[in-house]
Design a protein around this nucleic acid. Structure first.
Lengths: 347, 347
DNA sequence: TCCTTCTATGTTACCGGTATCGTAGATTTC
DNA sequence: GAAATCTACGATACCGGTAACATAGAAGGA
């Protein structure tokens, strides 16, 4: 741009004061050029702009935030980044807040509420303007700390009665109930729900409840929930293992409802190898509506959940609150959709 | 803890000065209790600790960072969070730096270098202590800005000659070459490489080069690279489409090497529907070694890449540099592994 | 006993910005 | 042409911490 810039010697961490000196003004004028340019004489503004370019000046928001009281950061805690759904939600949050110039701090709690608590503590030291959490299960300390701190907090992936502040999600109970009912409607009777561990995970717990409710309402006996402990990651092989186990140990089971498409797809593929006919002999349903479920054959019946929308909505209401506007209601149920495909289509 | 804490009125954003007043000391002593507790008399320390608990004081690292010159933040830019590989890498970075008490700021560039540049700019305003980038392709401005700023920078997912600072990855060229050679060894001759757009993505470009090199070295004619434009996301359906197109338009093709397992799995499943026998009639290979490729039948031949390790290594060398220790060499090739499975096993 | 050296804490200045108020000169008003 | 109002910028204080230095009293040494 400017011929005054000496190449290769862009100032390292030039400060506003240095820019000011170079432009022959005070810091205040430089600050104005950056935030309220209309209040500065065009000629002065240009001198300052040139000085900024020449020095490669990048303003320091940490310093600015000290005064203004806003760090310009939103923090998010997810159980894991490895699960595409949480990644989708984060991407949604990121999209929403990036437009407002906010940054996103991420950490993952490995599904442990005490880890989450210590992360909340360390995150609050960075004075985020708002916080996004996953789920409704948090330690009492976490809840107290956040309530006391008073920043906007959005809990996600569920709906519930006693949010810390705001909630965006859908009812996992209703979703599991709806899918179970769908399986019943399709003609399945001995339906097993395959769930992850429900400790520290009210999503898993609610889904199990939804399953039982639907079974009872249909006058069917709820079978014991098959809990898989998938230590490292959610893997299709786990679903395959479940099918094999059920095939030999519970041969009367006629449908498997998995808490994740990842499991369900593994089960679907393993079924073929075992000679189990899906959907005639065994119905298989998943949860989350991942891409892979559309491509496998038979295609996978599943629950579509609004992962990205949850993130976007969370970001949007945070921005509302940060703009000083109250958000009512504080609970947003974004719903779900039962997607009935071939894997449960008994002809 | 302390009976002095009035329930429900944990101090909102209590400051160090308030803690100091309550404990009857100055800010400096409170600061010492937090960072160099051994320098404070045990009795005083206890009074201060009680005051901290009673007020629910959470130190403000932004303020501290202003003085100490370190924000305690590491920034990472990935093309997208939606791709499990980048999520894995982030998780690796996060693991590595969390132990050192550093936070992670994330943003996604949507594979666009100019977006990346503006993100770098806005990220630098937050004065991260270090930066992790994906790939080696960046705008000149980005490179200049980062070099001038002087913070440790790690580029990931490739190896290359002219890093901004440090690189951790593997050679996509060598990986594609090795896989192509593997296909040749398995008996395939008319091998098509299916790639994403290579603009702004040297990983894609290098893979295409590796493919061509291997073909030429084997005395085979490299076929035109099939470029898929997958606007929204990397989806299996795209791979399915490719198989259908190739099946009708290039019936002599006997192997497809996809730049992602996601495509390859879609292709594998579509092949079955088309009655194409894999691996006899058509070999199919992928890239990345995703879980799903192990479960499908036939299982998928692929290139295993060290996604998490890249993140961890990146985090580790950043920490080294932040601890003031020089890092030599500055380029880390973490390698890859060809995983030959059923989908290319011609009997 | 007097001087030195710790130990424990306080004082001061400063990090890099911004809010607030002040003010000189130009412009408008009657 | 004097008063009122703008315009464009500067001076000051402060945000919430920490580094560096200062200091009072206790402990140690000759």
């Amino acid at each position: 741009m400017s011929e005054t810039s000496s190449p290769g010697k862009l100032g390292f961490g030039a400060t506003m004061a240095e820019v000011a000196r170079r432009a022959g003004v005070t810091k205040m004028t430089v600050s104005r050029v950056l935030r309220h340019p209309e209040k500065v004489n065009p000629q002065t503004r240009e001198r300052v702009t040139e000085a900024i370019a020449a020095l490669g000046y990048v303003p320091n928001r940490l310093a600015g935030g000290l005064t203004s009281g806003a760090s310009g950061l939103v923090a998010a805690i997810v159980p894991t980044l490895r699960h595409s759904l949480f990644a989708d939600t984060l991407e949604g949050v990121s999209d929403a807040i990036a437009e407002a110039g906010l940054g996103l701090i991420v950490s993952s709690s490995a599904y442990m509420t005490d880890v989450e608590e210590s992360q909340i503590r360390s995150i609050l030291e960075r004075r985020p303007d708002a916080l996004v959490l996953t789920g409704l299960t948090h330690t009492k300390n976490s809840r107290d700390l956040l309530r006391a701190f008073g920043i906007p907090v959005v809990e996600t992936w569920e709906t519930g009665d006693d949010p810390i502040d705001m909630v965006v999600g859908y009812s996992n109970r209703a979703a599991a109930e709806a899918m179970t009912s769908e399986l019943v409607r399709a003609g399945y009777r001995r339906i097993v729900f395959v769930n992850g561990p429900s400790k520290n995970n009210e999503r898993a717990r609610h889904r199990a409840e939804g399953y039982r409710q639907a079974m009872q309402r249909a006058g069917l006996e709820p079978l014991p929930v098959h809990v898989v402990h998938d230590e490292a990651a959610i893997r299709p092989e786990t679903g395959a293992r479940v099918v094999r186990a059920v095939h030999t140990e519970q041969p009367d089971v006629d449908a498997l409802f998995f808490t994740s498409d990842v499991f369900a797809v593994g089960a679907l593929l393993a079924s073929r190898e075992l000679g189990i006919e899906v959907p005639q002999q065994m119905g298989i349903a998943g949860f989350h509506d991942l891409e892979i479920g559309r491509v496998v054959s038979p295609s996978l019946t599943t629950v579509h959940v609004p992962a990205t929308e949850i993130g976007r909505k969370a970001g949007a209401i945070l921005l509302e609150r940060l703009a000083g506007r109250p958000v009512e209601p504080r609970r947003f149920d974004l719903g779900f959709t039962i997607v009935a495909r071939e894997s449960t289509h008994r002809r």
